[in-house]
Simulated assay, not measured.
Amino acid sequence: MASCSESSNADRNRTTDSEAQAQPLDQDTAGLAKAVFAGGCFWCTEAYFERLKGVEAVVSGYAGGKEPNPSYDEVSAGRTGHAEAVQVYYDSTKITYQGLLEVFFATHDPTTLNRQGPDVGKQYRSIVFYSNPQQKKQAEDYIKELEEAGTFKNKILTYVQPLRKFWPAEDYHQDYYRLNPDDPYVRSVARPKVQKFESNFRDKLKPEYIK
């Protein structure tokens, strides 16, 4: 089964549609709330969140390490302390931070250490990055709730840590799922997961993603 890093390395050696069509972040994000999560390959995580009503933009990037200006080569090789992450810009009157947490924990396995499916390494660890005490408390309380309910067979290993800096990833990673439908990783790993998400969270989807 293809891994996220294998697909990415192959794609960078040829001209891709994403290089020509990737959408820059809408600069009009004033007034929007922000949340940052890491839960495996950011192509999947980005695709989940961008489908939610109330989410206005999602940026793939890196967070959790101390190294400035990390590159994908460095992160995917495990040469930094960063994890692949996404920054979510959302309208808090349409979707709450609690709602984002619920989607985050339902769309990856928070009980595996430094691994999500075929993607292995600290760069794929599960993290909730908080920007204020309220986000920290909500994340910790929700993890406790999931543990007490026995939602997962094994112990949740998700880190809850402060966001120091979010570094946007290279342009070709942005909106990767939509722009690279024939990528082997997208076909074999991401698409089945996204389709399952669309089925399970149909009531939270933007109209254009309801089938």
Results as ranks from 00 to 15, higher is better:
29 T>C: 08
69 N>Q: 08
28 D>E: 12
156 I>D: 07
139 A>T: 04
36 V>E: 11
142 Y>S: 05
61 G>I: 01
84 E>R: 15
140 E>R: 14
111 T>M: 06
136 K>P: 00
47 A>D: 01
51 R>G: 03
49 F>H: 07
70 P>A: 06
124 Y>I: 11
67 E>I: 05
133 P>Q: 05
65 G>W: 10
67 E>N: 10
145 E>C: 05
113 L>V: 14
150 G>V: 14
101 L>Q: 07
129 F>Y: 15
67 E>M: 10
90 Y>E: 03
136 K>F: 03
155 K>G: 03
91 D>Y: 09
122 K>N: 13
82 H>V: 09
133 P>M: 14
77 A>F: 02
107 T>Q: 10
135 Q>I: 08
133 P>F: 03
135 Q>T: 06
121 G>P: 14
62 Y>S: 01
34 K>I: 15
102 E>Y: 13
84 E>M: 08
124 Y>K: 11
73 D>G: 07
118 P>N: 13
142 Y>I: 00
102 E>R: 15
107 T>Y: 14
65 G>F: 09
126 S>K: 06
100 L>W: 14
97 Y>K: 10
94 K>G: 00
141 D>V: 05
104 F>R: 11
41 C>G: 07
70 P>D: 08
44 C>M: 01
97 Y>L: 13
75 V>T: 12
77 A>W: 00
27 Q>I: 04
122 K>E: 09
91 D>S: 02
132 N>S: 05
108 H>G: 01
68 P>Q: 10
34 K>N: 03
139 A>N: 02
49 F>D: 09
74 E>G: 12
56 E>L: 00
73 D>A: 12
84 E>N: 08
98 Q>F: 03
118 P>H: 09
35 A>P: 12
96 T>N: 03
153 K>F: 05
80 T>Y: 14
65 G>P: 08
81 G>V: 06
104 F>W: 13
147 E>L: 05
49 F>G: 07
91 D>Q: 12
71 S>P: 01
107 T>K: 11
83 A>F: 09
134 Q>V: 15
123 Q>K: 09
120 V>W: 01
30 A>Q: 15
89 Y>L: 02
48 Y>W: 07
115 R>P: 04
102 E>W: 08
50 E>P: 03
105 F>P: 11
64 G>M: 04
107 T>N: 15
71 S>Q: 12
113 L>Q: 12
102 E>D: 15
35 A>G: 10
39 G>A: 14
51 R>H: 04
117 G>E: 01
30 A>W: 07
117 G>Q: 11
130 Y>N: 08
74 E>P: 07
53 K>M: 14
104 F>S: 05
43 W>H: 05
134 Q>S: 10
67 E>V: 08
84 E>K: 04
127 I>M: 08
52 L>D: 00
126 S>F: 09
99 G>V: 13
149 A>W: 02
126 S>Q: 06
108 H>S: 02
144 K>E: 01
91 D>W: 10
101 L>S: 11
77 A>Q: 15
61 G>R: 04
113 L>W: 13
36 V>K: 06
101 L>I: 09
127 I>K: 02
121 G>E: 00
44 C>Y: 01
118 P>V: 04
105 F>Q: 13
101 L>Y: 12
74 E>R: 15
132 N>G: 03
35 A>K: 09
63 A>F: 03
50 E>F: 03
66 K>W: 01
34 K>V: 12
